[in-house]
């Protein structure tokens, strides 16, 4: 069992990471990370650039598999199942653990086709069902009202903030259990950022959310738990309010008070 922040006894663990090391070729990027991510809550990963927080995030849906020369040791369990076990179907894993990227990456197709993409590749052909899923997903991503009249127009015509919400809708359409967000607002203006943050607050009722952010205010605003990474190590992991007001580690304190990073 990884490091668990001080949470109520009723809090269940969704993702359990134990002693995770990760290497890019010969260079080690993560050092013995152990942490337990609580279910149906927002966990923020903060730390200076290059501290390994995005790398860590990408181990949770095995996106790092795509990079040549990446090697890991340790275990990552989701609902108790080791996701690096050879019997795991990576495609199925990625369906359960969705990801929102740093820059909005809608596909060069219509708004509708973007949202229907996931259900379609997973075999859904029924037009009425698809319509329903598209509408629901867009509603949950708080985008429906803005795009309902242009569902069949190119997604690339939307604004940056709308594109990012579309990417979230596209993800919700495959009904994941965990949503990973890799600095989802770093390319957006303040108003779009605010809307995404409101959305995150809504989504945590249903999903386990892990968000990487550069912005400490954002971590404080949206997350229930915060993990501070430095040089590939997990320095401190605690309830957000605790971590920001009573950091236990000197390095955490230095970082959140702006002394480095």
């Amino acid at each position: 069992m990884g490091t668990m922040p001080d949470v109520g006894a009723d809090q269940t663990v969704k993702i359990d990471v134990e002693n995770l090391d990760l290497f890019y070729g010969k260079q080690q990027a993560l050092f013995g990370v152990s942490m337990s991510v609580p279910a149906r809550a927002v966990t923020a990963l903060i730390g200076p650039s290059g501290c390994g927080k995005s790398t860590f995030l990408r181990t949770l849906n095995r996106m790092n598999d795509l990079i040549a020369g990446v090697r890991i040791s340790g275990t990552v369990r989701i609902d108790g199942t080791d996701i690096y076990s050879p019997w795991i179907d990576v495609v199925d894993l990625r369906k359960r653990v969705g990801m929102v990227f740093q820059r909005p990456n809608p596909f060069p197709m219509s708004v509708y086709d973007n949202v229907a993409y996931g259900p379609r590749i997973h075999g859904l052909r029924n037009r009425r069902k698809l319509d329903e899923i598209v509408e629901n997903s867009l509603r949950r991503a708080a985008l429906w009202d803005e795009v309902k009249d242009r569902l069949h127009q190119p997604a690339l015509g939307l604004s940056g903030g709308q594109q990012q919400r579309l990417c979230i809708a596209r993800l919700l359409a495959v009904e994941p259990e965990v949503v990973l967000m890799d600095e989802p607002t770093s390319a957006l203006d303040p108003i779009s950022t605010l809307r995404i943050e409101e959305l995150i607050a809504d989504l945590k009722e249903t999903y386990t959310i892990v968000i990487v952010t550069h912005n400490m205010q954002q971590a404080a605003r949206v997350s229930d738990y915060t993990a501070f990474f430095l040089n590939g190590e997990l320095v401190e992991f605690n309830a957000t309010a605790e971590l920001f007001t009573k950091p236990k580690d000197k390095r955490t304190e230095d970082y959140i008070t702006g002394r480095f990073g």
Binding site: R94, G98, F101
Partner: peptide, 17 residues
């Protein structure tokens, strides 16, 4: 663009899809 390919894989598309 790599983000498009990653986006598809992250939704559970197989390599061929």
């Amino acid at each position: 663009p790599a983000p498009l390919k990653e986006g598809a894989l992250a939704l559970g598309a197989t390599h061929w899809e």
